[in-house]
Design a protein around this nucleic acid. Structure first.
Ligand code: ZN
Ligand code: ZN
Ligand code: ZN
Ligand code: ZN
Lengths: 149, 149
DNA sequence: CTCCAATTGAGAAGGTTTTTCAATTACCCG
DNA sequence: CGGGTAATTGAAAAACCTTCTCAATTGGAG
């Protein structure tokens, strides 16, 4: 068992959760993988350790581990569920947490940052996906009240 | 009909696609909305213009318009479909386009950039989501051949 | 070991997205 | 302005994906 796996298991126990076969399997699959794994891939891996493990349990395990911030969701640039009109050129969206009002902004200035990441990782960076979350002016003004439509 | 709507319609025609009721409805809904709309919301809007418009057509329309880069998907921070082990603290992922190998990196230095966006938009920015896409060292080396597992 | 709450699997229910195919529609042409 | 025609569509069904419910199982404290 690798170090990271042990750490995560200890964390689980520290929060009062049981260490079960399914949780072990999911954590092992993720600590052993160099890429993000989908719920289905995790299920397949888990079943190699114990074919009785059900898909439902993987969903529950992933939810728990995400909630404890022991694993993180990684957005893979598809399966998005909202759409907005595209302005010409390269833009990003800033979405209001309360009312979901979105603004598009351009002039993204990530050049230096990206160069540094490329140097550190050895990757050639071909694209980026940046989205910001915040509170829009109207919702800040409205404060405690209901979200503005 | 607003300007942006007309532009998008012209673009559609320019690419040799027909301008149909359903496409008009989707484009009008999006140009008229201050926030990203889901497929279902688009369907509801479209049906207000013509109750005969089916959900399937909305799917097809959204796919087409996205492909033409006339609209853009906006990731709303849920419904992600891959997971990765979390390192402590705030990190981001850089995913290889070819083999999906992912690396995590920290030290994200967006402070100044975020301040500027906040000034320009009036939003108070509470969170960000940044993911990078690239080609990993192994896949660069392998070049034309099959993706590395 | 024993016991008990936490956890699980199975199955069904509820959603979402894709496929198929005949009917309809937008638009080119005369 | 009408036809002719290929693109587009709606409906229904199939294929998926995610959540719920509940009885059976299991991990770990004592
Ligand atoms: Zn708001
Ligand atoms: Zn950018
Ligand atoms: Zn690669
Ligand atoms: Zn960051």
């Amino acid at each position: 068992m690798d170090d990271h796996e042990q750490t995560v298991l200890d964390d689980l126990r520290a929060h009062g959760y049981k260490v079960t076969q399914a949780r072990r399997a999911v954590i092992r699959a993720l600590t052993g993988s160099v890429r993000p794994l989908s719920v289905n891939e995790l299920h397949a891996q888990a079943q190699r350790m114990n074919p009785a493990i059900g898909l439902v349990t993987i969903y529950r395990t992933v939810e728990l581990l995400t909630h404890l911030d022991l694993i993180r969701p990684v957005h893979l640039m598809d399966n998005c569920h909202g759409y907005a009109v595209a302005s010409p050129g390269h833009t990003h969206h800033l979405v209001c947490k309360k009312c979901h009002r979105a603004v598009e902004f351009d002039g993204c200035d990530l050049g230096l940052f990206l160069e540094q990441v490329a140097r550190e990782t050895g990757y050639r960076i071909t694209g980026h996906w940046l989205e910001l979350e915040g509170i829009c002016a109207r919702c800040q003004a409205a404060d405690g009240s209901a979200p503005q439509p």
